[in-house]
Computed example of a mutant assay.
Amino acid sequence: MKKIRYCKITILILAGWAILSAIGFLGKDTIYSRYTVDPVKTPYFVLVMQGIHDGIYPWSSDHESLWDKWEHLAELRRDEEQISATESTEPAVAGTESMAETEAVAETEQEEVRSFHPVDAGYFSDAVFIGDSRTVGLHDYGGLDDSTFYATVGMNVYNLWTEKFCEVDGEKVTLEEALKAKKYGKIYFQIGINEMGRGTLDGFMTAYEDSVEKFRELQPDAVIFVQGIMKVAKEKSDKDPIFNNVGIEQRNERIAALADGKNIFYLDMNEVVCDEEGNLKSSLTFDDIHLYGSKYGIWVDYLKENGI
């Protein structure tokens, strides 16, 4: 009895398979024309099963399947997009932006802008300080022992890339060679006092901007801090036609304009070392230009309050 029962089930399965295959074969060029099937690898009854899954039934007279409906809706959407594009042609030609586009750009720019915040000494472990004798003093008395310093007395922006004043593995190399030898997270640049009285303000800024751009090329992932030129004491500023605070302020205004709030930031330690009149406090300097060794902590504390 079991054999007869199994035989009937097998016959029913084969008959059903044959019927579905016949339906699939007969409808392959009509109702199932959108489907592709390889008769060598896949039998035609698969077409019927795929059709049923998509809402196409063998007895459907209008052949209106879900596929047809989806395609119809897609055509309607394309038509609506074309109409919208046509309606917005005139303002696009005029060069205006939609409110949504303007807001999107504004939000993106706002997200990219970064702000200052307090940091600890460890923040400077991947920093390199580049500059003249004032940066040398920061190295000698600032306590930033984990930082790298490429600075020398008398350095100026015109000789910055030609002199071999950077020590790497016991050898004196150029600044470019030094910056290629190691990756840094921050670059602190402070220079400009030695260039006063030499050339023009525009010439100084051209060389300064070229240096900042070169920092970007050599250290593309580093945050660049351009530091204002530290001012001099009142006694020197009032008497010296070259090294005076009026000239320093002119340069600092131009340096500050380089900051973009994203990759380049302006820092001005004059905020903490100058008096109400904008002159370097006489109590902080031994020669009206450089800080006492014991006073470099003021500069370091200012840097710690302004990390990115």
Rank of each mutant, 00 (worst) to 15 (best):
Y6W: 04
I9Y: 04
I9R: 00
I11Y: 01
G16K: 03
G16T: 07
L20P: 03
S21P: 10
I23N: 00
I23W: 05
L26G: 07
L26I: 06
L26S: 11
L26W: 06
L26T: 12
D29N: 13
R34K: 05
P39E: 10
K41N: 05
K41D: 08
T42P: 09
Q50K: 14
D54R: 05
W59Y: 02
D62E: 15
H63L: 15
E64T: 06
L66I: 06
L66C: 06
D68E: 04
K69I: 15
W70N: 09
R78S: 08
D79Y: 05
E80Q: 14
T86H: 03
T89W: 13
P91T: 09
A92Q: 02
V93L: 13
G95N: 01
T96Q: 07
S98D: 04
S98A: 10
M99C: 13
T102A: 13
E103H: 12
E103P: 11
A104S: 13
V105C: 05
E107C: 03
T108N: 00
Q110W: 12
Q110L: 09
V113R: 06
R114V: 12
F116C: 01
P118I: 07
P118L: 07
S125N: 06
A127R: 08
A127H: 05
V128G: 03
I130E: 10
D132W: 01
R134H: 12
H139W: 01
D140V: 04
Y141P: 10
G143S: 06
F149L: 04
Y150H: 12
M155A: 02
Y158R: 09
E167Y: 05
L175E: 01
Y184Q: 05
Y184R: 04
I187S: 03
I187N: 03
Y188C: 03
Q190S: 01
I193P: 01
N194L: 07
E195R: 01
E195C: 05
R198D: 12
G199Y: 02
A207S: 11
Y208M: 06
E209T: 15
V212W: 00
V212C: 00
E213N: 15
E217G: 01
D221G: 08
A222G: 07
I224G: 06
M230C: 14
M230A: 09
V232N: 08
A233I: 07
K234T: 04
D238H: 12
N244M: 05
N244I: 01
G247L: 00
Q250A: 13
R251H: 14
I264K: 02
I264A: 02
V272T: 10
D275N: 15
E277I: 08
G278T: 09
G278C: 08
L280Q: 11
S282A: 15
S283A: 04
S283I: 07
D287W: 04
Y292V: 02
Y302L: 13
Y302H: 14
I308R: 13
